[in-house]
Design a protein around this nucleic acid. Structure first.
Lengths: 320, 320
DNA sequence: GTTGACGGTGAAATCGATTTCTGACAGGGT
DNA sequence: ACCCTGTCAGAAATCGATTTCACCGTCAAC
């Protein structure tokens, strides 16, 4: 593993000069040429580790997401990547798997690897960003914004979207609308459920037994849907608060199409590779990619020294 | 950002002692306690960068995949992660986006960041691993194995799977079976097409016009399916060589169900969130997660000094 | 002809850990 | 009393870049 010293020795110059060649500083044409040749012949790759240690920062940003198997987050990741790459930054993806421990470990790595910044879709409301903040590493929250830290955030209109989805079901004539949402300690889950309550309240008492807290995953949606169907008086429609649980619910409902009374269904967030469901579904589209793009721009601004007070950007739930 | 020196000063010991405390070496109980307290009160996080520079390796492994939006690869990633985490390694995901340039950049980062190893699902057959190999960094190829480098690889039975899928269609009575496969420079694409040829040949001349090379993505499958349907004598069934193109083909075929003559369809790899297609589809299941698990184990072995000759492990296409 | 500015260069300090080397000291065996 | 072994701990070297500082020429200005 060739080092800058070996290159310097071969080219007959000092290490400082080699460094200058690679960082575009003034070096005489002739020495620059010798250095480049030496570097090539040794297949020299400058050590990012040494560079990062000296510079106290690297051109890598961490994107921490709770579920790498959810197309919503991967689509967001693509948005982040495109912006970051264009600005010369690399993105490393960290999958926290909805696990606070893993998440904390990745945040630790971001700190101790001197990463330039972090974009975080937190596993829960209570995550500890104090380490990053103390060290003045920029953090942008996306999709979900953690409690207790005043940082940049990019979110969507969760409550309004939940309301809109439920209202759409009402307009279709459904009377007993249930709601399957995510974990209680995740902001997007409670806000979307609040939207459901908003829409249901004017039509009568809010039936909390029609509200199921699940885990934002396929199996959770599956299980919750089953529970709803097994109730004494089952709902006639359901608002599902994210895409994967929507898939889970569909797995339950699809086989019943034609045999059981039709159920209404609305989903918050685009169904993955959809267009194949055997029933009409109301979808509140989610600008996943755009969330990523916006968060990445925000983060890059901070990295470049922008220090205005933290902003929260709320995107509309329009299709991109 | 507290350093080991500040901790040492506060605890009244030398930096060496602080290091020893955190690395489980012999230190008197009393000094160890002082060090821990000092570390806590300064919220000290040891710099991975400095550590990595000195140790010449880190506990991070890179997983480079060509398409983060393909559930096959994310499922594989989960397998890798689970094994790596259990062994104390962190995984960073790098999305090469089927782009050789980005891929090369990520491999460079793996080298210059002193990562412990790389698991690579290459964007194409011709990727340059010489940098990693020269520096003796372990690399494991997964799903696809690059040409010209003798390294560990974990693959599936592509040709046999392609043959099985096509044969299944024949057994269902289809006569003119087309094939939609991936790029010419991707091994899995050509091997699966070879399997198709194997099955078709005994029944008559291999109609190469029924073979479409696409890009392993939804849109590519969509476009290829369209082209097939517009032929003078369209096929009556299609074998699609990966999951996403299968989705694309389905997008074309689904609306025709009931109106046009039934088409047969077989797909190599599990359809994402499937079970919702309006037609029978033969699926050759792909042990995505298991691929990841196996690759990770192989890589960990290498990292731990195993230096037997490179192995290629071929997994069966059984459901996990 | 002196002064100043400026481009080019190398020596050496620096980033923050780990690790070798070395010495101090305690305890056990003869 | 002496030697040997072993534990504990600090000083200093090390990893490989970047960057400051100092110095040397050269050239233009006055």
């Amino acid at each position: 593993m060739a080092t800058i010293y070996e290159v310097a020795a071969l080219a007959g110059v000092s290490p400082a000069t080699v460094s200058r060649v690679f960082n575009g500083q003034n070096v005489s044409a002739e020495k620059a040429k010798r250095v480049r040749e030496a570097a090539r012949s040794l297949s020299f790759t400058p050590s990012r580790v040494a560079r990062t240690l000296r510079m106290q920062s690297s051109e890598v940003i961490a994107l921490v997401i709770p579920d790498i198997e959810n197309p919503f987050f991967t689509s967001m990741a693509r948005g982040v990547e495109d912006v970051a790459q264009a600005a010369g930054y690399s993105v490393v993806l960290c999958n926290s798997d909805e696990d606070h421990g893993k998440e904390a470990r990745y945040l630790d790595i971001a700190i101790s690897a001197n990463m330039a910044g972090v974009i975080l879709a937190a596993a829960g409301d209570n995550c500890d960003l104090s380490g990053l903040i103390e060290r003045k590493r920029p953090v942008v929250a996306v999709d979900r914004s953690p409690h207790g830290f005043d940082i940049d955030a990019v979110t969507v209109e969760n409550r309004a979207g939940g309301r809109a989805a439920t209202t759409a079901l009402q307009k279709q004539g459904f009377q007993r609308i249930a709601c399957i949402t995510g974990p209680r300690d995740v902001e997007t889950a409670t806000q979307r459920a609040d939207g459901w309550r908003d829409a249901v309240r004017p039509t009568g008492p809010v039936e909390e037994r029609y509200l199921k807290y699940a885990d934002f995953r396929v199996d959770g949606g599956h299980k919750a849907m089953h529970e709803l169907l097994e109730m004494a008086e089952p709902p006639d429609a359901v608002f599902v608060a994210n895409n994967l649980m929507g898939v889970g619910a569909l797995q339950v409902l699809s086989p019943r199409v034609g045999t059981a009374p039709a159920m209404g269904m609305a989903v918050f967030g685009d169904l993955p590779f959809a267009a194949m469901a055997p029933m009409a579904i109301t979808v509140i589209p989610l600008p996943a990619r755009h969330l990523g793009v916006t968060a990445a721009k925000l983060l890059l601004d901070r990295i470049n020294g922008d220090d205005q007070p933290p902003r929260t950007i709320v995107l509309r739930n329009h299709a991109a």
